[in-house]
Design a binder for these strands. Sequence first.
DNA 1: TCAATATATGCTTATATTGGCATATATGTT
DNA 2: AACATATATGCCAATATAAGCATATATTGA
Lengths: 121, 121
Amino acid sequence: MLNEIEKYKVLGEQTRFRIVMVLLKASKELCVCELEDILNVPQYNVSKHLSLLKHAGLLEERKEGKLRMYKIKDDNQFNKILFKSMDSIKAVSDETLKQDLVNLQKRLALRKNDRVVVTRN
Amino acid sequence: MLNEIEKYKVLGEQTRFRIVMVLLKASKELCVCELEDILNVPQYNVSKHLSLLKHAGLLEERKEGKLRMYKIKDDNQFNKILFKSMDSIKAVSDETLKQDLVNLQKRLALRKNDRVVVTRN
DNA sequence: TCAATATATGCTTATATTGGCATATATGTT
DNA sequence: AACATATATGCCAATATAAGCATATATTGA
């Protein structure tokens, strides 16, 4: 399938959409356990969805010790516009999404010098 | 589900993506039978996919006699950006998509004064 | 080297999606 | 009114997807 179609497809699922939205709002890489904590989704699901997002070419992964850091991959025009479309969603009226963003801030506050020190919460 | 997620989802399927791409390149409304002819997809499938696209808020429908005309719905910021992302897909290297666009031109050439006169081909 | 931790992955089941086919509906035509 | 045509839709079977659970892998630290 055309890679761009794949990108729309993977974004068209609630959990994956939430992951990407959180990473966009974070503007920095997050590890799996942080996402798990922010989204309140089991680790194995977060990992699976991250894998799909990565293979579709929307995210990048980097190893850092025991952790795997994931971040937005916007090194091409298509991705940039796609993320811009997500950014244009004003109505984060959705309760789940709203809570995700609150949890994101809480999680980031647990970092020390912007480094992950608390894993599961 | 958040309406925007639904929009990504419906675009994340080959046939629906093709429909939208053809409508974008056409820059005008097309009827079901034209799309059927252009895409080489059975009428019932074209209709079903059009229905999903309409309900997701990506297309508009208008009755014209026996025909139902479908067109791009870009009356909001999110849709505009989404369609822009499709427009940015340079690599219409995909053979199917390339053929669709050829067929689109052939079908449009069958119109008389920009009105549909030939139905199934 | 052993244990603990972070993450990934295989298997199974539940659910959703898609296509095919038949048929219903609506509109125009004779 | 009967018929033809354009389109939509209900049902079924095939396939794809997602969650849950158990477990494998990799890395760190004792």
